[in-house]
């Protein structure tokens, strides 16, 4: 039985690391901050969760498994909110959008209309 668990853990760990590598590559392939954030958060978070689950499979005692799964759960909550804050701050600070990132709808609608709760 432990052989199967080890191979599954190994596959998960390698898949997670390759996803983290994908995130690193994505940082360079995209044009501006807003598209780069997609690369930096999504695959990196999934890769990290794969690695943590792989490590949890091989962890020896109960406390270790809980810590690993805790970090995986935390990562699902913190990564999107952190990236959202950076994106909003970058947009407000006037970081230029490259044309590759598509239409800038936020500019066409006046800010007042955003906050209006009709």
């Amino acid at each position: 039985m432990t052989g199967v668990v080890d191979t599954v853990a190994g596959v998960l760990v390698v898949a997670g690391s390759l996803l983290a590598l994908l995130a690193g590559v994505g940082l360079h392939r995209f044009g501006d901050v807003f598209t780069r954030m997609h690369a930096a958060t999504k695959p990196a978070t999934l890769g990290l969760v794969f690695v943590l689950v792989g490590a949890a499979l091989r962890a020896s005692e109960e406390g270790a498994v809980m810590k690993l799964l805790l970090v995986a759960a935390l990562q699902f909550v913190t990564a999107p909110s952190g990236a959202h804050m950076v994106g909003r701050a970058a947009y407000r600070a006037g970081v230029p959008l490259r044309i590759s990132s598509g239409v800038e709808e936020l500019r066409r609608r006046p800010a007042a209309e955003d906050d209006a709760t009709t």
Partner: peptide
């Protein structure tokens, strides 16, 4: 903002590295 995104994913890589070490 690019630098923050880079540092954030660097931290993720470090955390993943510790996970791989634990595995």
């Amino acid at each position: 903002a690019d630098r923050i995104v880079a540092v954030d994913s660097l931290v993720l890589v470090v955390v993943a590295g510790i996970g791989v070490h634990a595995a």
